[in-house]
Design a protein around this nucleic acid. Structure first.
Lengths: 105, 105
DNA sequence: ACAAAAGTTAGCAAATATGCTAACCTATTA
DNA sequence: TAATAGGTTAGCATATTTGCTAACTTTTGT
């Protein structure tokens, strides 16, 4: 667990809507690039070997695994997963609390 | 649970690599269109209301929720989720064993 | 039945993702 | 040292996605 001061500071920041949205977006990107790199490695493939399986080039793979890339498409991630012998699972999780709805009251 | 004959037949089909890949891809699409439509409804938004929140138009929303659409990008899904007060979780699951079971689908 | 609201579809311009080539960097190893 | 393998970066052409308008169909409510 992170230091408590940092934690409360982050909570404060995350209270700011604008910051929160930007943070979540950046964080997701980071997650994806990290995850696909990890997936490739777990399949014991070099970027070039994977590129061959995906009908693309190693330079493209490098781009996708780079932390500041953001243009992922589902079809790309699907190809990525398949070439690594995996399957994608995608889930939408509603943030609890905050917005109530009239119908719920 | 599906009828047993159907189940074994599906298992046989899914043993065919080509079929399996096509099936998984189509199934994922279906899942996404279904999931985002469900998400929107759970947020009590009409397509038009959601479109406003996402800075687009209701015709676009309709397209994304249609079962034969396949061009999803992560940034779009991200926008979708945010506008509905949700967060995306994405996971790559390595297929370990050789046999797939319908129960997992 | 009627009107309004909600959802669908087609076709277009602009924006964005993708694959490619080619040059470059960094380790590892013969 | 040289050579090779793995990875990174930039710039370009093509392909795909996205938002838009406008007309259309379906559903809902009175």
């Amino acid at each position: 667990m992170v230091n408590k001061k940092v934690k409360t500071y982050m909570e404060k920041l995350l209270g700011d809507k604008q910051f929160k949205e930007a943070f979540e977006e950046e964080y997701l990107k980071l997650l994806i690039s990290e995850k696909i790199a990890k997936l490739r490695k777990s399949a014991h493939l070099t970027q070039e070997a994977l590129a061959k399986k995906m009908d693309t080039t190693k330079s493209a793979i490098s781009r996708y695994e780079s932390a500041n890339y953001s243009g992922y498409s589902m079809s790309l991630l699907e190809k990525f997963a398949r070439a690594c012998g995996a399957v994608i699972e995608i889930k939408f999780v509603r943030n609890k609390g905050r917005k109530r709805h009239l119908s719920k009251i």
